[in-house]
Write a protein that binds this DNA or RNA. Structure first.
Length: 464
RNA sequence: UCCUCAGUAGCUCAAUGGCAGAGCGGCCGGCUGUUAACCGGUAGGUUGCAGGUUCGAAUCCUGCCUGGGGAGCCA
């Protein structure tokens, strides 16, 4: 007999009504009475478990079935019966129950609410809980939706390298990649580590961004995006930072900053709509147990035009704000978390693009505006999460790029190929970075990044 | 890295200087088709670790460890 998946039963229960079927899965809950018992069995294909009914008259080993623990794996053969008056739309009246894998009484998950902190300690079992089932199904759906969005628009998917020797971007601390013996590395004449003897013949590290490589491909394919793991060795201990996370970085040739923002807004709305449509049960769970304003907020975002303000306007709003900030507001300083939160949660109550930041507080590759004081950068900040997207129009003028690199103390010879892109058919182009995990947090209301990554890597934490 | 709060049964928590407890889960029993079922019984503790104050410490003090929240940095 072919095993039927619960997701198919849910979709066309009537077609299976009265028929003998086989299902298998793991026990979420098992309760027995004098003459019959009920098992909630989750087979991994659907948010909801299927109810298995077993009757004493049918099973010689009824007492043993009644004692099966949560987490046990079963194969069940029986008849599907529609139960329109009950909480569940259908159930399976069992004829045969085979115990595939027992789960003893020390199984950590109970049929009750657990704290997310406890569940992090059993990261190998937490995907069997309602919350994490929902989170990781949404993570998968969202990843697919991201590919769909870009592929539908003709973007080329670029696999940017994971190991690089670009030591110049300054986006956080780097994880060194080396095959040298840490106890006895080869030394140069002046007693420094001789990286010319290392695997790549130079210092190398895990990527902190695929953007520079994406620019090269954008100037060949016009529209590209990267989607892959990114690594930062920053000693930051917050609910929004991980050492290993996934980033999406579109890059578009012949595009300026306003094209860039249009793309970001279209993308975010597409992703929200996709998840609301394809993860109905999961979104209901988040809305009920995690963040009660979630669905309403996301639905409003779909209809709203995102706000657009310049950095200078943001400073003016904050200076006039009726709020006390721990950090002073002044033109030239970067916006603090509290400032961003005020703008997106109090002033606008929706996503806000902030553009044209002072050149001193942004990266060297961002295009200098005509005023000479600001660069064509944009950050998208959203309620609850803060910065979700950071991007810019890139500096396509070779002379200007070299000048900016000098200001940032970056040696041109280390990025000779990046400068070449300006020399040979350089055009205006723009792109941005979206943190996948931040997007999941925004879409689910889950407030800790460790709870949207299957096996999170953070400072002092690399278990599993 | 800084600030801050917490750590008591498998889980969630109570006990604030004087006998270490409850709910859930586990185990045993009962039960009308249950829905995180319900009812009864029962087992389960080096109160994070080390030291100190005290007649007496889960409770007060010091150090360390672990975790949460916030900040910096950023996505």
């Amino acid at each position: 007999m072919k095993t039927v998946l619960v997701k198919d039963l849910v979709r066309e229960a009537a077609a299976y009504a009265g028929r003998e079927i086989e299902v298998n899965g793991w026990i979420r809950n098992n309760r027995d009475q004098k003459s019959l018992g009920f098992i909630a069995l989750n087979d991994g294909t659907h948010y909801n478990p299927v109810q298995i009914v077993y009757e004493k008259g049918q099973f010689a080993d009824y007492d043993r079935l009644a004692r099966l623990g949560v987490g046990s794996a079963l194969t069940v053969k029986g008849t599907l019966e529609l139960t329109p008056k009950a909480k569940q739309p259908f159930e399976i009246k069992a004829r045969v129950i085979v115990v595939e894998g027992n789960s003893p009484e020390d199984y950590p998950l109970q049929p009750k609410r657990h704290s997310v902190e406890f569940l992090r300690e059993v990261a190998h079992l937490r995907p069997r809980t309602n919350l994490f089932t929902a989170v990781f199904r949404v993570r998968s759906l969202l990843s697919y939706a991201i590919h769909r969005f870009f592929q539908e628009r003709g973007f080329i998917y670029l696999h940017a390298p994971i190991i690089t020797a670009n030591d110049t971007e300054g986006a956080g601390e780097l994880f060194r990649v080396t095959t040298l013996d840490p106890l006895a590395p080869p030394l140069t004449e002046d007693s420094k580590i001789d990286y010319s003897a290392d695997f790549f013949g130079k210092r190398s590290n895990l990527t902190v961004s695929g953007q520079l490589e994406a620019e090269a491909f954008a100037l060949a394919f016009r529209q590209v995006y990267t989607f892959g793991p990114t690594f930062r060795a920053e000693n930051s201990n917050t609910a929004r930072h991980a050492a290993e996370f996934w980033m999406i970085e579109p890059e578009v040739a012949f595009a300026d900053l306003s094209d860039n923002m249009k793309l970001a807004e279209d993308m975010l709305k597409y992703l929200i709509a996709y998840v609301l449509e394809h993860a109905v049960d999961e979104m209901d769970l988040f809305n009920q147990f995690v963040d009660q304003g979630l669905k309403t907020r996301l639905e409003r975002v779909l209809e709203a035009e995102f706000a657009h303000i310049t950095y200078t306007e943001a400073i003016e709003i904050l200076l006039e704000a009726d709020a006390k900030f721990a950090y002073p507001v002044q033109w030239g300083s970067d916006l603090q978390s509290e400032h961003e939160r005020y703008l997106t949660e109090k002033t606008f109550k929706k996503p806000v693009f902030i553009t044209n930041y002072p050149k001193e507080i942004k990266a060297f590759y961002m295009r200098l505006n005509d005023c000479g004081k600001t660069v064509a950068a944009m950050d998208l900040i959203v309620p609850g999460v803060g910065e979700l997207i950071g991007g810019s129009q890139r500096e396509e003028r070779e002379e200007m790029l070299l000048k900016r690199m000098t200001e940032f103390n970056i040696h041109p010879e280390e990025l000779w190929w990046y400068i070449d892109l300006r020399k040979y058919g350089g055009v205006k182009h723009a792109g941005f970075g979206l943190g996948l995990e931040r997007a999941i947090m925004y879409l689910t209301g889950v407030s800790n990044i460790r709870d949207v990554i299957p096996f999170p890597r953070t400072v002092k934490c690399c278990g599993f």
